[in-house]
């Protein structure tokens, strides 16, 4: 059943609650306070000798390293490689999952037959086959895109199936009583219903695609953020390692922001 397939039940309420009204300024102040606390603790740990400088660089050094990377342009090839791998993988996964998911949703026979395999591939730790994928697809863009897509595919697939099939009997009866065609039921009921399931899955898929790309770069690569992290770590450039991690985190946030905007646009028009 689709119910079992759904990895996350989606609803408008599924998002973290956003503070409103009077809580806003207080929350903002608290957020700044937390930030200051983290940076201060970090600074103290790194400079007091409590943590070895081989493991942790002070925030100032990290910021300098980041500025340096941006200024001399050494960051861009790495960033652009990782962004490409992630986005290609993500788009590939989403398109494939929407197509396959719709096919499954409308054919219970196929769905029931394929379900055990979906379950197996869902529980299987896909990063374990990263070396194999590199062996098959070589050292460039392809294996990272494949890994990114493989990781991002399943949450979108399961939520597409769930969103298209999990409509109540009452809703179906309403559409039957209005003599709606199958196409109209799809357009006015199932697709809008599915959007509420698919968007949260897109957020997880984006993160998973990024993980896939980085793992691919760890296994074998000449560029990319994952490659850079590995290089900096082995050569003991601690500050540069942390700077790269910050870049990664900003990219992740940017993805999340882009999806939020996309969601708003789509929901307005459904």
């Amino acid at each position: 059943m689709a119910t079992q397939l759904a990895s996350s039940v989606a609803d408008e309420t599924a998002k973290p609650p956003r503070p409103r009204g009077g809580a806003g300024p207080k929350s903002a102040a608290l957020a700044v306070l937390i930030f200051v606390a983290i940076v201060t603790t970090w600074h103290v740990l790194a400079t007091s000798g409590a943590v070895s400088p081989l493991l942790l660089a002070p925030p100032g050094d990290v910021l300098a390293a980041l500025g340096q990377m941006i200024a001399d342009g050494s960051l861009w090839p790495h960033l652009s490689a990782t962004v490409q791998e992630t986005l290609f993988g993500f788009v590939l996964a989403v398109v494939a999952a929407l197509v396959v998911g719709s096919a499954f949703a409308f054919s219970p026979i196929v769905r029931n037959a394929v379900y055990p395999y979906i379950l197996i591939s869902q529980t299987f730790p896909k990063v374990a086959i990263a070396p194999l994928i590199v062996a098959i697809f070589g050292y460039d863009l392809a294996p990272k895109v494949v890994l990114a897509a493989l990781l991002a595919f399943f949450p979108v697939l399961t939520n597409t199936i769930a969103g298209l099939t999990e409509v109540s009997d009452d809703e179906v009866n309403l559409f039957r009583s209005l003599r709606a065609s199958k196409w109209q039921e799809l357009r006015y009921l199932r697709i809008p219903n599915a959007l509420a399931f698919i968007f949260p899955a897109l957020n997880s898929a984006a993160v998973l695609a990024l993980i896939g790309a980085i793992v691919g770069e760890f296994v074998a690569s000449r560029t990319g953020i994952g490659y850079a992290i590995q290089q900096f770590t082995t050569t003991g450039e601690v500050a540069a390692t942390y700077a790269t991690l910050i870049v990664l985190s900003v990219f992740g946030l940017a993805l999340y922001g882009a999806l939020t905007i996309l969601e708003r646009l789509v929901r307005r028009n459904r």
Partner: peptide
């Protein structure tokens, strides 16, 4: 025209 026991409005 049918008014069901549950309102069954489309939430979007």
């Amino acid at each position: 025209g049918v008014a069901f026991q549950k309102p069954t409005l489309l939430r979007w």
